[in-house]
Design a protein around this nucleic acid. Sequence first.
DNA 1: GCCGTTTTCGGCCCGACTGTTTTCAGTCG
Length: 569
Amino acid sequence: MTNAEIAQLFADIADMLEIQGEDRYRYLAYRRAADELGQYPGSVEALWRDGRLEEVPGVGKTIATKIDELLSSGTLKFYERLRQEVPPSLIEVLRVPGVGPKRANLLWKTLGITDLAMLEAAAKEGRLKGVKGLGAQTAQNILKGIEALHSLGDRTLLGTALPLAETLLDALRQAPGVVQAEMGGSLRRRQETVGDIDLLCAAGDTAPVVQFFTELPQVRSVQSAGANKATVILHRDLSVDLIVLPPASWGSLLQHFTGSQAHNVELRSAAVAQGLHVSEWGITRDGVLTPYADEAAHYRALGLDWIPPELREAEGELEAAREGRLPHLIELGDVRGDLQMHTTWSDGTRSVEEMARAAQALGYEWIAITDHSRGLGVTQGLDVERLREQRREIDAVNDRLAPFRVLRSIELEILADGTLDLPDDVLAQLDVVVASVHTGQRADRPALMKRYLNAVHNPHVDIIAHPFGRLLNRRPPMDLDFEALVDACAETGTALEINGQADRMDLNGGQARYAMQRGVMISLASDAHHPDGLKVMSLAVSTARRAWLEPKHVLNAMPLDIFLAWLQR
DNA sequence: GCCGTTTTCGGCCCGACTGTTTTCAGTCG
């Protein structure tokens, strides 16, 4: 079973226990374990074979035993029994905004509702009003919630949400009395997709800011609005939360609403042990609240270094902050070159020189031009002859733009039979070889791994591009033995890419961190097809930061001479 | 069910908003 499948099963268990009204801490323990299993970078099955399941945070003796039963027999009796007691389809009802475990249980017991369709029918027929505790307004809200569920659908790409949030922040900064305005939540942590947008403001008088926000032209409907907080839906089907507090609490507010939830729970649990109580208003000691206007001061008061938002996932950052050993994360300004882009020689829309000048304007010292090789038919890929012609053009551009350097490269197709698209003697003449899989991605794991390992072991291949081949909301990742791929890369000195295309973000943060920890170098790529596309390097850097990467882990942070030396490794 | 700078037992983050069961439960982040 995949990590995701195991995690889903335990998440379902948590939901069913919660609907049953089980002890809060019991179902929270299952949910925590599910989250940790889902984001565990290695293979949970492999951990299980080694008898090391309890190394996963949140997995203790009981859950480890259940995973063992599940993986050795294929089923879990405890789960099967729960499915008899609680209709599994009731879990989807929990996704409706305004319906939690208590109401799901109530609707099931009183009206026999076991899935979303039945809930929708009952709401439309006015049958909810008869249930104790549900008024006409609640029935209306549930209907609206179901509609929202149908229309919202996919999560929003970071690359889509960021500019949208910037626009809203610009507007908020014009609101009466606003002295601070920033994004929070998963957006500030630069998660690759976000479920909603969180905006934070500081203002002396908070209510007028909330009102100003609910009246912005982008707003389609207002879900809730109070003195400090509002939730709205934008015309483009995206939910936005705004929280406004006085400036004295700005730092505490930022900390609280940047999350993640797991980070906050861990932070506050540790604080409680010291007799401190943390909220968005500040830190309470002996019943006295101290607000923090500065986020770093808020962390300092808890004995912690300021933690970059990208690290706030309860993945060891609190311990590192306590011990003063947080990483010095890579920044966009550390990037000296871009390791994947395309020109009119394949599927790009601009010449080598136009791309080079655009990169120069961004302050880069070097780039690699990586047009597709011939195997990818649709993109007019390069064969040996056209590659030779392109080389003359690149040489000429280098003469004109020196000391800026355009490296001769290629995005080399790893073919379905495992061979590479160009012969070794041709690859040997290139500065950098970036290899990738675009076809036959649905092949099974052994077939895919055979192809990848063959490419990694070729002495000319330097980088594997977008290793998983996923497209967010559109195409699942390939079924790889990632640990084996990382081992092979570590052994051969091959780098793995973080592709910054908004719908790729491949590797993701957890995967890149795992590779880094095993000594694999990481390459950052815009994969640009036109000059404007170079800017998504910022998304690749965000992902690199989520992976705890420092400049020393990243090929793009190398000055040209050092990078050229690395290529000779 | 998990876990340990105080703990192998007894805790487990905290506040805003809504609607309804007028004093608070349910939901959400």
